[in-house]
Simulated scan of single mutants.
Amino acid sequence: MRFSSSAPRTVVAAGALVALQGLVGLGFAVLLLIRGLSGDSELGGNVFGEAAYFAVLAAGVLACGGGLVLGKHWGRSPAIVLQLLLLGIAWYAIGPSDRPEIGVPVALVCVVVLVLLSRSTTTQWAQGDQDEPRS
């Protein structure tokens, strides 16, 4: 199946990475739900509410990624804000939480997405300066 989008490849690649982040978030929500249904006593609190919260957030991230893949201009700004927020979370995971095995991959993906969304072809596309789609 051949996919055709009016967006440059940088936008489509960034959208795919953002959509992947959304899928990981949905997976996390499902794992929380499974642990809550198993009766795990160490979780405490309202695990189902937390799972629902993460599912809603992940669905929003997935929508931004899908919008970018489809060449929708509205997906760029929320994706940039999301990456900046995730960079802060990655920094916290690397430093104070002492979990670099989680923080470093998250930070690398965020930096790659930010670079892709900041390329000149992407900004030209976002501003509507581009007459023909570039590869």
Rank of each mutant, 00 (worst) to 15 (best):
Q127G: 12
S41H: 13
Q21V: 15
D98Q: 13
L17V: 11
V81N: 11
G103F: 07
A58C: 10
S77W: 11
W125I: 00
F54S: 09
V115R: 09
G39P: 03
V106R: 11
S5D: 13
L62W: 09
V61P: 02
L116S: 07
P105L: 06
L37P: 02
S97P: 04
V69W: 00
S38G: 10
A52M: 15
W125G: 00
A51D: 11
V30W: 14
G36Q: 04
V18C: 06
G60Q: 11
T10Y: 01
K72V: 06
G75K: 00
G22A: 09
G36H: 04
G15N: 04
L20K: 02
K72H: 05
A29Y: 04
R2P: 14
V113Q: 02
R35A: 07
A14L: 05
T122K: 03
G67T: 01
L68Y: 00
R134Q: 05
A63N: 02
I80D: 08
T123P: 00
A51F: 13
V112Y: 00
G15C: 06
P8N: 01
G45K: 11
P8A: 01
R35N: 02
F48M: 13
R2T: 13
R76W: 01
G75F: 02
V18S: 01
W125H: 00
L84F: 13
G44E: 06
E101Q: 14
L23S: 05
C110S: 14
V81P: 05
L87A: 13
S97K: 14
F54T: 10
V47I: 15
R76A: 10
G27I: 02
S118N: 08
G88D: 04
A59H: 04
V56G: 13
A29W: 01
G95N: 11
G15K: 03
S6F: 04
V111C: 08
S77R: 13
R9V: 04
K72W: 10
V115L: 15
E50K: 14
L108M: 10
L117E: 00
R2F: 12
A51H: 14
W74M: 10
F48T: 06
A13V: 12
F54M: 13
S135V: 12
G27S: 07
V113Y: 06
R119H: 09
G71L: 03
F54G: 09
L26M: 15
R99G: 05
G45T: 11
